[in-house]
Simulated scan of single mutants.
Amino acid sequence: MRTMRSALLLLGLGVAGCAPDLREDYPFDGQASSGQLVTVTPREDGSSHALIDATNKSAQVYFDIDEGREMKTDEALDTNGWDLAFQRYTVTMNGGGGNPTGQVRVAVLEGQDWDALATAPTEGYQQDASEPVFNGVHGGWYTYDLVKHRLATREELLYVVRSSAGRFFKVQMLSYYDDTGTPARLSLRYQQLQAPTAAP
């Protein structure tokens, strides 16, 4: 019996030694950047690609989707002109729980083809409540793999953002990791839509 217990103990230690190191693989770890936190690249199809450095665990990155740029915290709060804010895997909007004085609203579309969506929908717009729309509606923008400890984006979800300036944009979350595998460096694409035929 003692021999069997010893063998099981050694086997358990061997398996534990092969397990992934959560300090490296855990998706909510990362180094904060003091440089440019938003990089926007226009695409030939009229859309834009945004890379958001949201690695700082204690600060939000404010994004003005109308102008396609980062808003520093003081400017964002003073002007109330920001649209989306990113902090690790959490995406909030300038409206509702994210900011009760904000006018941003978001509609979530499931199974909608990106290219086929040219006009914003007339209904379905929400503001953040106890949980952000991006993280809660239709199960949120990502799935979490408990074995690999990684986030995977749900590209079947499209978000239509009614911005602080009253314009409409379709948004698709693309990745939580950059090309080197660093977490909380989110990629998304967005493109302006025609306004809906009736005001939402």
Rank of each mutant, 00 (worst) to 15 (best):
residue 3 T to P: 00
residue 7 A to C: 04
residue 11 L to E: 05
residue 12 G to E: 10
residue 13 L to Q: 08
residue 16 A to C: 15
residue 20 P to L: 10
residue 22 L to C: 11
residue 22 L to N: 10
residue 22 L to R: 12
residue 23 R to M: 13
residue 26 Y to L: 14
residue 26 Y to I: 08
residue 27 P to S: 05
residue 29 D to R: 15
residue 29 D to V: 14
residue 30 G to F: 01
residue 31 Q to I: 11
residue 32 A to W: 00
residue 32 A to E: 07
residue 33 S to N: 13
residue 33 S to E: 08
residue 38 V to F: 11
residue 40 V to E: 05
residue 42 P to L: 07
residue 42 P to Y: 07
residue 43 R to M: 15
residue 43 R to D: 07
residue 44 E to C: 08
residue 45 D to P: 03
residue 46 G to C: 03
residue 48 S to N: 13
residue 48 S to Y: 15
residue 49 H to P: 07
residue 52 I to G: 05
residue 55 T to A: 15
residue 61 V to K: 04
residue 64 D to E: 10
residue 64 D to K: 06
residue 65 I to M: 08
residue 66 D to G: 11
residue 67 E to K: 14
residue 69 R to S: 13
residue 69 R to P: 02
residue 69 R to V: 11
residue 70 E to N: 10
residue 72 K to I: 12
residue 72 K to A: 12
residue 74 D to N: 13
residue 76 A to T: 07
residue 76 A to V: 05
residue 76 A to E: 04
residue 77 L to D: 05
residue 81 G to Q: 02
residue 89 Y to F: 09
residue 91 V to T: 10
residue 92 T to H: 03
residue 92 T to V: 11
residue 93 M to R: 00
residue 94 N to H: 13
residue 97 G to H: 02
residue 100 P to F: 09
residue 103 Q to R: 09
residue 103 Q to A: 13
residue 104 V to M: 07
residue 104 V to S: 05
residue 109 L to E: 04
residue 112 Q to S: 11
residue 114 W to Q: 07
residue 115 D to Q: 14
residue 121 P to R: 03
residue 122 T to Y: 05
residue 124 G to V: 03
residue 124 G to E: 06
residue 128 D to Y: 08
residue 128 D to W: 02
residue 130 S to W: 11
residue 130 S to Q: 15
residue 131 E to G: 02
residue 131 E to V: 15
residue 132 P to Y: 00
residue 134 F to V: 04
residue 136 G to D: 14
residue 138 H to S: 14
residue 140 G to S: 04
residue 141 W to D: 12
residue 142 Y to C: 09
residue 145 D to W: 02
residue 145 D to V: 07
residue 146 L to K: 14
residue 147 V to I: 14
residue 148 K to P: 06
residue 150 R to M: 09
residue 152 A to I: 02
residue 155 E to N: 08
residue 157 L to A: 04
residue 159 Y to Q: 09
residue 161 V to T: 01
residue 162 R to K: 15
residue 166 G to P: 01
residue 166 G to I: 01
residue 170 K to P: 03
residue 173 M to S: 06
residue 173 M to V: 15
residue 175 S to Q: 06
residue 178 D to N: 15
residue 180 T to C: 05
residue 182 T to K: 13
residue 183 P to W: 08
residue 184 A to H: 04
residue 184 A to W: 00
residue 185 R to W: 04
residue 185 R to K: 15
residue 187 S to P: 01
residue 187 S to W: 02
residue 189 R to Y: 01
residue 190 Y to R: 11
residue 192 Q to N: 01
residue 193 L to C: 03
residue 194 Q to N: 15
